[in-house]
Design a protein around this nucleic acid. Structure first.
Lengths: 255, 255
DNA sequence: TAACAGCGTTGACCTAAGTCATTGCGGATT
DNA sequence: AATCCGCAATGACTTAGGTCAACGCTGTTA
């Protein structure tokens, strides 16, 4: 029996919002994301061919390297740093649809235009592939395409979670969900008691991700602190004494 | 040059939230969704093989045929009727993540469990495939998998749109977006002036889709009517004199 | 070392949307 | 034809979160 279409090589915890995991650099076989990417499905000789299609670039903090609605000429694979993906309304309202980092693949577009923008939060390293090149690669390596599909399924699940959050959760539940999600990003599925989080994004980014304002994010964090659910440390890090309690709030299990 | 990974055979307007388009019935070559499905990528002899993997079922209105969190044993392809997909919180709050109908494929799951529920709105006809069977089919027909991926990309775009709606749009913008989306569903990209919409879902469904309450949906529709943006006809249909004006509101281009 | 800018926090107040309650309307049941 | 029931609409009132404004911290520029 062939491996499952959707469960193959797939972490239980879905990643955020963008097709993850294409590897690419001057030498793909020593790439930082070798283990994660869709290319984890490739043999070393295949990686060789992949490497020739990739261009390595670095993006400074704050730089928008995908403009909403611009022509979708390239695919990207994040090999370092954190990127925010967003959509905007004409009057400046903004929704961040995801924060993505190392290993994530970026640039699936429905039409010939990107439906979202992408901005570097910190120093970001990327591998860039032109769309025609990536197309011929997936043509050549069907396993890569299978891997892309399973990652797309992951992203869809994450997107559905986020819709539940944005449509139906309270501010407290949203912020708790965000914090708990960060814990999962850093620790995987087994989160130790008193785990620490440090994130690169600002309060404004968090607000735009959670559909709130900066003030509400700030007040809600203060509330969680007052209730002993988080403690703020020096160096912009946050400790979570009881991840289980935080998760309960995040999932709406609180009176 | 191979066809684009993401733009191949793809409508510009993204569909809602579930991998679309696997065809299947007793005789796939005469199936209702022959033209839409991923099997539109298949030859007639291949369809023959597909047909043997499919089981045809009918689901009555109100019946939940995918239970949130249950084991993901099957894939479904909608061949008739309309389905709502949803996620819930323990206290009963519910977010409908999409309405899907004919041609849509349903059942991509990250783990071995469904992350969402699915309920028939009206009489729904489905083709059911067991996961192992579908896996071997995609193994056999790579074009099917490519088609699934491009549909997943569509769904991701729709999901991002919905996140913007849920996180940042006003009630008026949400309801206008919903109505305009329905217009697109029925008329495609060229929407005639004074177009009509009739939908099978209740106000409660619309509310749970838009992250609002029934009362707010009701009041907002009344407001749009007062402003001459829609008119209510007999038989639960709504007319839209100027789709362009409605779209402008939906996109947040109103003072 | 002063001035400034970016970011975060907090308080006072406001409002869009939620809650609760009432009414009405078609369609099914008897 | 009476009643029942699910759905929709509307009014009165409440509230979670938004808005506006002040302030404080930290790091950077002059």
């Amino acid at each position: 029996m062939p491996p499952s279409l959707t469960a193959e090589n797939m972490p239980v915890r879905p990643r955020r919002l963008v097709i993850a995991g294409m590897e690419g650099c001057t030498n793909c076989s020593v790439c930082e994301v070798r283990a994660n990417g869709i290319c984890s499905a490739l043999r070393d000789d295949e990686l060789e061919r992949l490497a020739r299609a990739a261009v390595r670039i670095t993006v400074p903090p704050g730089h928008i390297f995908i403009e909403e609605g611009s022509r979708a000429t390239d695919f990207f694979n994040i090999t370092g740093g954190t990127v925010k993906l967003f959509k905007s309304l004409p009057d400046g309202r903004r929704q961040i649809t995801g924060f993505v980092s190392i290993g994530h693949f970026l640039g699936l577009a429905v039409s010939d235009r990107y439906a979202f923008g992408a901005e570097a939060i910190d120093q970001v390293k990327l591998c860039r592939f032109s769309r025609p090149k990536l197309d011929s690669l997936t043509e050549e390596f069907p396993r890569m395409e299978r891997r892309l599909l399973s990652e797309a399924a992951n992203e869809l699940v994450a997107a559905q979670d986020q819709m539940l959050l944005l449509g139906r959760k309270t501010a407290r539940e949203r912020v708790s969900s965000f914090l708990y999600g960060q814990l999962e990003n850093h620790h995987g599925d087994v989160i130790p008691a008193d785990a620490r989080i440090s994130f690169p994004m600002t309060r404004a980014d968090i607000a735009d991700f959670l559909g709130l304002t900066v003030e509400t994010v700030s007040r809600t964090l203060s509330g969680l602190r007052r209730d002993g659910l988080v403690t703020m440390n020096a160096g912009h890090t946050i400790s979570v004494p009881s991840p289980a309690r935080l998760r309960a709030i995040a999932q709406g299990e609180e009176g």
